[in-house]
Amino acid sequence: MESGTLADWLEHSFGWMAWTWVTGTFFLTILGLLVVMTVWELAMPTVQRKGFLPISTTRGDRFFIGLLSSAFIHLAWLGLVGAGLTWALAICAAWMVVLLRYG
């Protein structure tokens, strides 16, 4: 292989995916959250319980509901309010905490 091989190889293999820093950070954050949830589960196994949600859920269920509803909160923000997703992100972070604790 020639010099600068790793960068060349990455560009050759994944260039078509058109990575950006924003999306890269996004996926790494999701991955990090999944790792944290796994470690949390190993340290303290979840108990299925009933909170303010109409169904009884485990921690993983609430995490999934949180991620999915966060996506829709972002979409609703873009559709109804417009630009400025930082606020939507803040709302989602708060929503996730509330959901995991009281959901």
């Binding site: 995916m17 950006t20 924003v22 996004f26």
Partner: peptide, 19 residues
């Protein structure tokens, strides 16, 4: 993941992408 990447960029063909 590639679709997510494409969704925040504009394509000009030939691997040129604008965020």
């Amino acid at each position: 993941m590639a679709v997510v990447n494409y969704s925040v960029q504009d394509s000009f063909g030939g691997g040129v992408w604008i965020f």
